[in-house]
Amino acid sequence: MTRLRHRTRPLMMICAGVTGVAVLSACSSSSTGTSASGAQSSTLQTVTKRGTLNVASCLTFPPFGSVNKDNKPQGFDVDVATAMATALGVKVKIVDTTSANRIPNLQTKKVDAVVCNFTTTAERAKQVAFSDPYIVAGEVLLVKKASNIDDIDDLSGKTVAVTKGSTNGDAVKAGNPAAKIQEYDTSSAAVLAVKQGQADAMVEDSNFLNYQAKLDTSLKVTKDSVVPLEYNAIGVQQGDATWLQWVNTWLREFNTSGQADALYKKWFGVDRVYPLTPSY
């Protein structure tokens, strides 16, 4: 009995050791496999293997996105998407989208990224992952250069054009109760009201209004935002850390190289008004 126990003990230790090695090997193999599988399933690898970057952009909101006379996509966001593809060494495919379809297009993997004047919000972040900001917007005033309007304090007794359904009218009233609010169906109609003297000012996205001032040199854009600044970013699918890391790394190079500033000047006609670094 004693001898049998002495003989069995080393054998059990050997078996336990072998079993431990097998378990360790299995765990290691499983962990590596998961990691490898995760890397292979990343959008980064998918895009480079496919040779095409599919990007959702809004082609009905110039100068962020539109189509030229040859029906080809153009605009600031289109150029950003093209620069991304160039950095990846692939072609770009622009998928025309609407504001409502931006998130569904990502979730169904119809696109690899959304570059479409996509403002970051906590609510949207429940469904998509956002990159670092690549453009910042405020809600500012479009006025005639000949006017003496420089900020919201100058709107007392003045007529301010806003689009129906926006919160801009409430923001103006909160900042200057003496301002008169006039609603229009579209942003274009509100811009026209300022041009024709039916309104003294218009409130809208600063980047959009800079573009309008570029088209008509009789107009100017004020610098002070009537609401907190909005930070627009590139949207990607949640849970893909590899892809998000690449996008953010590329954005840092894109923004610090001067390429982003050059594209902004090209499309909006002015230097950036607001810095990319959030200011609270």
Rank of each mutant, 00 (worst) to 15 (best):
I181Q: 03
V226I: 15
R7P: 00
G258P: 14
V236G: 02
N148P: 10
K164H: 00
T32K: 15
L251K: 10
L251D: 05
M13Q: 10
V172E: 01
Q182P: 01
T242C: 01
W267T: 06
K195E: 10
A100E: 06
D271V: 09
D216R: 12
K109C: 00
P62S: 08
F61Y: 10
N117A: 14
V114K: 02
I149S: 09
K126M: 00
K126N: 13
K110A: 13
A137E: 07
P275K: 11
R9G: 00
L215S: 14
Q238K: 15
S188Y: 09
T186C: 00
D200H: 11
K223C: 02
L24G: 14
S35P: 06
N255A: 13
P10W: 15
I149M: 02
M84R: 13
Q238N: 13
K265W: 08
V221E: 11
F268R: 05
G20S: 13
W250I: 11
P10T: 01
L251V: 12
I94E: 01
Y211H: 14
A179K: 02
V136S: 04
T256S: 15
L4H: 12
K69G: 03
Y211K: 04
T32S: 14
Y280G: 13
S30Q: 12
A113W: 11
L106M: 02
N207H: 02
Q196T: 11
L219Y: 08
L24T: 09
V194T: 01
D79P: 04
W267G: 01
N71F: 13
V143C: 06
S188Q: 09
V221A: 09
K126C: 10
W250A: 10
K214G: 08
T277S: 13
Q40T: 14
F64I: 01
K110N: 12
F254P: 11
R102S: 04
I94V: 13
V172P: 06
I181F: 03
N148G: 15
V55I: 08
S147K: 07
S156F: 12
K223M: 04
L53Y: 05
N117T: 12
T86G: 10
S42W: 08
V162F: 02
L53G: 03
K72P: 07
M13L: 13
I103P: 01
T46I: 06
K144P: 10
V203C: 00
N210I: 00
R252C: 02
K109I: 00
K145D: 06
P275N: 07
V90W: 10
S37T: 15
T159S: 04
T19K: 00
D153S: 15
A129I: 10
T256Y: 12
N101S: 07
T2C: 03
H6Q: 12
F76K: 09
G169Q: 03
T60M: 02
S257A: 11
I234K: 03
A100S: 04
A125W: 11
A83F: 07
R272V: 05
C116S: 15
A22W: 11
Y280M: 06
V203R: 09
M84F: 15
A39E: 15
K220T: 11
E204D: 14
